[in-house]
Amino acid sequence: MTKTRAKKELEPFIPSYQGILLAGADEAGRGPLAGDVVAAAVILDPDNPIAGLDDSKKLSEKKRGALFDEIKEKALAFAIARGSVEEIDTINILHASMLAMKRAIDDLTVAAEYALIDGNRIPSDLPCSAEAVVKGDARHPAIAAASILAKVTRDREMVALDAEYPEYGFAKHKGYPTKAHMDAIEQHGVTKFHRKSFGPVQKNLSLF
């Protein structure tokens, strides 16, 4: 049975977690007006530690990129999954985020025995017991690693989208509702990559 309690304080390494296959899970992209929400799950190797893991938002783009490669090289297992724009518009961003994290945990090539989920909610129907960890990406290295994989993956996808739609400036704002992004939507309309259930996009649907 999945645990549903949220743990507000967590040291980077807790003895009770030693000796089990512990996965950290996090997502990136709940706030943007465009693009998928991306999630990752990571099982770190205690015998092959990674220095410098932290909340991805606190790291420079260069540092995140270097850690992205190191995590993929050293982790016992990792998986990256997503909730699509269509799913976000159908089931809402919260449920799409939970679905993306569940998919990431399900896709791990090594089955997790326990999962730490960033935030205060736990996805339903996980394959293992889990607990929510508020601000977990700054409190546990496995969640921090997941946050890095998710953010780097999503950021790179938005940079690639910028090459297709340069007038929107996706490479700069990554889909977030900046003034430049809002101005671009008003000037050029809504693309198929925009989340049409989000208010700022809805009011410009007639321009699509």
Rank of each mutant, 00 (worst) to 15 (best):
T2V: 12
R5P: 01
E9H: 14
E9N: 11
P12F: 13
I14G: 00
S16D: 13
Y17V: 09
Q18P: 00
L21G: 01
A23H: 11
G24N: 10
A25H: 04
A25L: 11
A28C: 14
G29K: 00
R30D: 00
R30H: 06
G31S: 10
V38G: 02
V38I: 15
V38K: 01
A39V: 04
L44R: 04
G52D: 13
L53A: 06
D55T: 10
K58T: 11
K62N: 13
K63M: 07
R64W: 12
G65Q: 14
G65P: 01
F68D: 12
E70H: 03
I71W: 06
K74S: 11
L76M: 14
A77G: 11
R82Q: 15
R82A: 12
E87D: 13
E87P: 04
T90I: 00
I91V: 15
L94W: 03
A96T: 07
A96H: 03
A100Y: 10
K102R: 15
R103M: 08
I105G: 02
I105P: 00
I105R: 03
A112I: 04
A115E: 05
L116T: 01
R121Y: 05
L126G: 09
L126C: 11
P127H: 12
C128H: 05
C128V: 07
S129H: 12
D137I: 08
R139G: 00
R139K: 15
A142W: 04
A145W: 06
S147I: 06
S147F: 00
I148T: 08
L149Q: 05
K151P: 05
V152T: 13
R154F: 09
E157D: 07
V159F: 01
V159P: 00
L161H: 07
D162Y: 10
A163G: 03
E164D: 13
H173D: 06
K174R: 13
Y176S: 05
P177A: 11
T178M: 11
K179C: 02
K179F: 03
A180R: 06
H181V: 04
H181N: 08
D183C: 02
I185Q: 05
I185W: 04
E186F: 04
Q187A: 14
T191A: 02
K192W: 01
K196P: 01
F198N: 08
F198Y: 15
V201S: 06
N204Y: 15
L205M: 15
